[in-house]
Each structure stands twice: as C-alpha cells, then as structure tokens.
C-alpha cells in the first residue's frame, strides 16, 4: 500500500469509528472539508505513528500543520524520506 493509500485508509477508518462521513479525500481538499474534526485528526496522527513509526507534527519545534489532504500526506513523505 502506498503511503497516500495508508493515510487515506486511516481517514476512512477513523471517520467510520467516529460516526462521520468522509466527504473528500482528494489532494486539493482542505482538511476542514473532509468531514473530520480535530479529535479525528488527533486519532489519525496517533494511529499513523503506530503504523509508520513517525509523527511529522511532533518532530519539529514549530510544526506547521497542513491545510490540505495533499499537504498532510506530504508531511509524512518528508518525515519518512
């Protein structure tokens, strides 16, 4: 599974567990339009850390949280490279 697919799979799984609908997951989608709330993203980041071994948002001193799905995936790609 590609990194992007792993991330989007987590979006879908967490959305379902939290009783939400994943409205968009394309690269251009702003995170605010995915249908997920901050608790969902907190859970996704924790699960991805368990799965991939990295948490790109806790690594830097002044983390810039991404605004779109594409930027979110890119943060993981950078962290793993």
């Amino acid at each position: 599974m590609s990194l992007r697919a792993s991330v989007v799979a987590q979006f879908a799984e967490v959305a379902e567990q939290q009783g939400r609908t994943l409205k968009r997951s394309d690269d251009d989608a702003p995170l605010t339009e995915t249908g997920l709330d901050s608790l969902c993203f907190a859970i996704i980041v924790a699960r991805l850390e368990d799965q991939l071994g990295v948490d790109p948002f806790s690594q830097s001193e002044d983390p810039q949280f991404p605004l779109t799905v594409g930027e979110f995936v890119a943060a993981y790609e950078r962290a793993r490279s």
Binding site: S38, L39, F41, A42, I43, V45, A46, D55, F57, S58, P63, F65
Partner: peptide, 12 residues
C-alpha cells in the same frame, strides 16, 4: 496519557 500534536494528549 499519550502526547498528541493536535489535542495535546490522548488516552491509550
């Protein structure tokens, strides 16, 4: 408690 960059912490 488990540190979390978005909500500060989550329970595990």
């Amino acid at each position: 408690s488990r540190k979390n960059p978005i909500l500060g912490a989550l329970a595990e």
